[in-house]
Amino acid sequence: MRFCSLFSGSSGNCNYIGTENTSILVDAGLSGKRIQGEMAKIEADPKSIDGIFVTHEHSDHIQGVGVLSRRFDLPVYASKKTWDAMICKLGKIKEENIRYIEADKAVNIKDLSITPFNISHDAVEPFGFNITDGRKKISLLTDTGCINSYIRDRVLDFDLLLLETNHDVELLKVGSYPWSLKRRVMGEYGHLSNETAGEFLIDVMKGEGECVYLGHLSQENNFPELAKRTVSNILTENKIELNREIILEMTHRDRCSSIKVL
């Protein structure tokens, strides 16, 4: 499998996963034009996409979904509740391209199996995703305000994990957000902090050289160097050897990440 985060952040999210036979997008939260531009940079043909999987209905995850579906006749996979919440924002979608998915029920597309799982966010039915080709496992976990045993169990045994490091708690507290928004971000239906993400990795990593992409950074309450340093410090404090037991990579809000081939 090949993974690339095309965009990740509070201004838009889109992830590409592909094999020789199959390719999907998870979310399409920027314009269709920008997504196609980043796909071209990694030599991924949008005409070859087999479907778009949607985590939840917020605009930074669905902005380009309708355009791409119409332009390339793509099926769109989301929960029934998410479809009900986002259909009015997407424009006209062919009936046959409206596909419903349920938590913990796999969708098989050629040589990929995609399984959604429930997460904790202020959306109607937000999902994380596990994607496997039967050999390796990619887990996508962003836009969750907390981690519980259910989420932990779904992410275990990942080979690649896209993990939210949305904010630094102290930056958020002293920042310009109104207190109601600060409470929302820090709450159980908000977003993971750098510290919580690092502690979560201690609990779920195997230490076999798996790859973790840090993503969905807040533009105001975080920055890449701080997110990576915070998570790295937590790992090293727990005697975990970086670049051997675990590899940390960064996503970017305005361009694609490095490409990881599993």
Rank of each mutant, 00 (worst) to 15 (best):
I109M: 05
F117E: 07
N130S: 03
K110R: 14
S120W: 14
K89T: 05
N108K: 15
L141Y: 10
T144A: 08
C146Y: 00
I131W: 01
I119R: 04
R99Q: 14
K137I: 10
S113K: 14
N130V: 08
R99N: 09
I147T: 03
I98N: 02
F127A: 01
I114Q: 07
I114L: 15
N130C: 10
N118C: 04
L90H: 11
K136T: 13
D111W: 08
R99H: 06
D104G: 00
A103W: 04
F117S: 02
D111I: 02
D122T: 07
I138N: 02
I93T: 12
F117M: 07
N118V: 06
K110E: 11
P116V: 07
I147E: 03
I147A: 05
A106M: 09
D143G: 05
N97V: 09
Y100H: 14
D111G: 10
T142D: 00
I98E: 06
T144D: 09
T132I: 14
D122M: 09
N118K: 13
E96R: 14
V107F: 13
P126K: 10
H121I: 00
E95G: 06
K92R: 12
N97D: 14
T115Y: 06
L90V: 08
D111F: 04
P126F: 09
T142G: 01
A123Y: 09
I138V: 13
E96Q: 11
E125V: 03
A123T: 10
S113Y: 02
A123D: 13
C146I: 02
I147M: 07
I119G: 02
K94A: 12
H121P: 01
D122C: 08
I119L: 05
I101C: 01
C146A: 08
K137E: 04
I101H: 09
K92A: 11
S120F: 13
T144V: 07
I109Y: 05
R135I: 12
E102Q: 14
K94R: 12
D133G: 05
L112G: 08
I119M: 04
A103M: 05
I98H: 03
F127L: 05
S113P: 05
N97G: 08
K136C: 05
G128W: 06
G91Y: 11
L140F: 14
K92M: 09
E96A: 10
I119V: 15
S139D: 02
E95Q: 15
S139T: 15
P116M: 03
K110H: 10
I119D: 01
G134I: 05
I138Y: 15
N108I: 15
S120T: 04
I101W: 05
D122E: 12
N97M: 10
D143C: 15
K110D: 14
N108D: 13
L141E: 04
G91T: 11
E96W: 03
K137H: 06
A106P: 15
D104F: 07
L141G: 03
I98V: 15
R99A: 00
T144K: 09
L90S: 13
I109E: 07
G134T: 08
L112A: 10
K92F: 10
G91D: 12
